[in-house]
Design a protein around this nucleic acid. Structure first.
Lengths: 339, 339
DNA sequence: ATTCCACCCTACATCGATGTAGAGACCCTG
DNA sequence: CAGGGTCTCTACATCGATGTAGGGTGGAAT
């Protein structure tokens, strides 16, 4: 039913392989032959069967992108950026949602989709320190995020500690002293939560401000709702922060909401800074000051590394760690009247 | 290098086809044989080559989802819902972003990915009335959204007119009379913009309120930014609305932002209702009253229809139109103190 | 004892493309 | 004019699975 190379070959009066050569841009073909083949393709409405090519070449032109949840704006925007970057390289992206479940993340690593994709960009949340061995997979992979350090694979990440330190230093620079940290995971050292808290504490220490545990807001998942309730918990404990550093924008927006519900003015009473630079922060009331962790750069770099990994031979590869550049976007939640 | 059925067959001492039969759950296999094969699979770490199966069967287990942009929360949440629904049916989803460009939408319809996917769920934005012919594709497809009416394919959509009418009637029920409409596309009749405006006008007419063009806020793309500037334009024109019906939540949030920037209180001075029920609306200040158009129902239905289309024989199929149920979620932007 | 059917398994062709090897034509060099 | 290189094209094997057709069993039915 469908038109195959065989049909095209017959109509053009050439061999199948010649059609294949034309389609693939093989140079040594007479112009007259090429024209014949192309018009036969046109006439028949031929379309290459990608599956057959995949079987023969072992390449699919698809890369997997495994992330926790698309409904979280940070990941939706990251997916967007990855898709755009992949497209520029002629690749298609297959998204897998792990729902932050360890079992789903292990499934992704087990390579169930391995024959369908040429490689994987993986942003893990549930697996972490101690799981380095799970990352020794036999297909090209690039990691995103903070969960694993010094693993055996390429890793694109951000300057979490430095960027977090910069955020808190920025608040201190505004004259704030009682700075709440929202999104703390007590006991965690390596993940985003651990690193950002570390940067936060460094900044406090350098400024000679003692850290006050009453200002730590615990939040497991980093949603708006958890940000709001972490903020509520801090306020209910009697602490009176004059600034908030939320470890991501979603929580920052939730926290800001909670502050305003309680009649506190942002930024007059409490300045708020987030982390991620999601689009939403531009349109909140007030707009949200945030740390831009270089999302597009991360996406571009991850795709580029993966392409390199796919093309390269397995041997002599030394895992690289790439850190994207960060900067602070100053907006209305810290400076009255800022854009 | 990779383990194939051949290797498994050899190790288990059976034929390749028997391995295939075991893998595919063919019933007539002796238990001892099945056990032998399964342990050979286990020993060798065999994984089915999906590509080869695809070539042979013509099915890939992948469905395409073409939508405008993942960075728009509505579509991100829709994608999430579709992925979940597809997973429940054992299908994987390949997302394509059209960036709302006509050329990209045509490309999607031309079936470039046809051999890679079993079918397509397509949410068009750029193509519309007059393009019905483009939809006569020779692969299974289900349409989402409002752009095309009475096309030749299955279509899952929402009660736009009725839901919009309900939104405006709700505002009227609160005693509001000067209701701005944000997201108007002048001249458009069939798309979401046209239908929602139509419902809005119906509600006004039934209440005997004359429509005032000064209260129409034009917005091409339905982002927060355009919502904010459409709101600004309405206010700058000197109109003094006491309520706003934004045709989606993103614009509603942008409009609400603009109102607050200008010192207007929501909902005291201006009540705001959106459309879409994206998660963001829960955490805005105040939280956003909105129309829930039944997104999950839409996703589930679309996947179910597509599966039916894929399984069914091409003939005797009559295109169906399915309308999801809507309801109003009342929150703080219309009722002070609401959740 | 023959027939039949349910059960269990195998051999071979096949899906639609690409890689390999090599054949034929042509031109250039020495 | 032999030898070599470049250009153009073809035949055939091959990727890894599944569909088809059919060959043996053994037990029940005739």
């Amino acid at each position: 039913m469908a038109v195959t190379m065989h049909d095209v070959a017959q109509r053009a009066g050439v061999s199948i392989k010649t059609v294949s050569n034309v389609v693939n841009g093989y140079p040594y073909i007479r112009d007259t032959t090429r024209t014949k083949v192309l018009s036969a393709i046109e006439d028949l409405g031929y379309q290459l069967n990608v599956t057959a090519r995949n079987l023969r070449t072992g390449r699919t032109g698809i890369i997997g992108l495994a992330l926790p949840e698309l409904s979280l704006p940070y990941f939706a925007e990251l997916a967007d950026a990855v898709i755009v970057a992949a497209e520029a390289q002629g690749l298609t992206v297959l998204i897998e949602q792990t729902s932050s479940e360890r079992s789903r993340e292990l499934e992704v690593l087990s390579g169930a989709r391995r024959h369908l994709t040429d490689g994987l960009i993986f942003s893990p949340l549930a697996i972490g320190a101690g799981d380095e061995d799970l990352l020794r997979v036999d297909f090209p992979m690039v990691l995103l995020g903070e969960r694993i350090f010094h693993g055996p694979v390429d890793h694109v990440t951000m300057h979490n500690v430095e960027a977090a330190r910069a955020a808190t230093e920025y608040l201190i620079g505004l004259g704030r002293r009682r700075i709440a940290a929202i999104g703390v995971h007590t006991g965690e050292v390596v993940g985003s939560a651990g690193l950002r808290l570390q940067g936060h504490l460094q900044a406090l220490e350098r400024a000679g401000i003692p850290a006050d545990p009453a200002l730590f807001g615990e939040a497991g998942l980093w949603h708006r709702a958890t940000g709001a309730s972490a903020m509520a918990a801090v306020l209910d404990s009697g602490a009176r922060p004059d600034a908030v550093f939320a470890f991501n924008d979603a929580m920052a927006l939730g926290a800001m909401h909670e502050l305003q519900v309680r009649g506190l003015r942002v930024p007059a009473d409490v300045a708020v800074i987030g982390f991620d630079a999601i689009d939403d922060g531009i349109y909140s009331t007030p707009s949200l000051t945030t740390v831009d962790p270089g999302r597009e750069q991360i996406a571009r770099t991850a795709v580029a590394l993966l392409v390199e990994r796919i093309a390269g031979k397995e041997t002599d590869h030394v895992p690289v760690q790439v850190y994207a550049d960060y900067r602070i976007l100053e907006r209305g939640s810290t400076v009255p009247g800022a854009p």
